[in-house]
Amino acid sequence: MKSTYLRAGVAALACALGLSACGGSSGQLALGGTIYGLTKEQIVLQNNGAHDYTITPSMLGAGNTFYFPDLIGIDEAYKVTVKSFPSNVTGCTVNYGTGRSAFNVTNIQIVCTLKTHKLGGTISNLKGDGLVLVNGSDKVTVPAGATSFQMTEVGEDQAFGITVLSSPANQSCVASNASGIMGTADKNDVVVTCTP
C-alpha cells in the first residue's frame, strides 16, 4: 500500500514540475502577440520546444493577435518558435520571442513572408506613349510600341486587379483577364488591347 501512495506522490510531483504534460497550467500570465502574413492553412508554434499550438487564420483575434492556451508563471523563461508554416510562405521569423515573464507577454511578432509570383501579359496595337497600368499602388508606364508588360510580383493567395490608368493620345486601351487571386505560379496571360 505504501508503494502505491509513493508512486502517486511521484506522479503528482512530476505533474507539478511539468503541468502542460498533465493537462493543466498553474500560470497566471498570457503569452502571445501578433502574426503577420498568415492567410491560409495553419501555423504551428511552440514554447520552449514543446506545447504545440496550431493556429489558423480564422482563430486570430482583432489585429491578428494570438495567445497560447496555456498560461505561464511569473519569472518563467519562454522561447517561442515556429514548428511548421503554411505552404504559401517561404518562412516565418519570430521577433521578441525569448525572455522571462514579469507581466503578460503580448509583444511577440511572428512575421511570415508570402511566396510571390510574376504578374504581366501582352499588349497589342500600342502606338504612342502614355499607357499607364496600375495594380493597387503598383504603377507601370509602358513605352510606345511595347508588346508586353510586367507588374511588381504579387503574393500567393493575394488579390490583384490591373486597370488602365491612362491611354496614349488618340487611343483607348483596356485590360482583360486582369483580376483575380494569385495562384501558385506566375500569371502572364493578362491582355491589354489598344484601339484604334
Rank of each mutant, 00 (worst) to 15 (best):
L17T: 13
L17Q: 15
L17G: 12
G18P: 05
G18F: 10
G18L: 08
L19Y: 02
C22G: 07
C22R: 05
C22K: 01
C22F: 12
G23A: 02
G23C: 01
G23P: 00
G23Q: 11
G24Q: 07
G24C: 11
G24H: 07
S25Y: 04
S25D: 12
S25W: 03
S26Y: 08
S26Q: 03
S26D: 13
G27A: 01
G27L: 00
G27D: 09
G27I: 01
G27T: 03
G27N: 10
Q28D: 09
Q28G: 04
L29Y: 09
L29E: 11
A30R: 15
A30G: 09
A30W: 08
A30N: 15
L31F: 04
L31V: 02
L31R: 04
L31W: 04
G32C: 03
G32W: 03
G33Q: 01
G33E: 11
T34I: 03
T34R: 15
T34S: 06
I35L: 07
I35D: 07
Y36R: 10
Y36P: 06
Y36D: 13
G37P: 00
G37T: 01
G37N: 07
L38N: 05
L38C: 03
T39P: 02
T39E: 15
T39G: 09
K40N: 15
K40P: 13
K40T: 11
E41A: 14
E41R: 10
E41Y: 06
Q42D: 13
I43K: 08
V44S: 10
V44Q: 12
V44Y: 06
V44L: 08
L45C: 07
L45R: 07
Q46N: 10
Q46R: 14
Q46W: 00
Q46H: 06
Q46L: 00
N47L: 00
N47Y: 12
N48E: 08
N48A: 05
G49M: 06
A50H: 10
A50Y: 02
A50N: 11
H51Q: 13
H51Y: 08
H51F: 04
D52Y: 02
Y53F: 13
Y53G: 12
Y53N: 14
Y53P: 12
T54R: 14
T54H: 05
T54C: 00
T54Y: 04
T54D: 02
T56E: 14
T56R: 14
T56Q: 14
T56N: 07
T56P: 10
T56H: 09
P57F: 05
S58P: 03
S58F: 04
M59P: 09
M59E: 15
L60G: 13
G61V: 03
G61R: 08
G61K: 04
G61E: 09
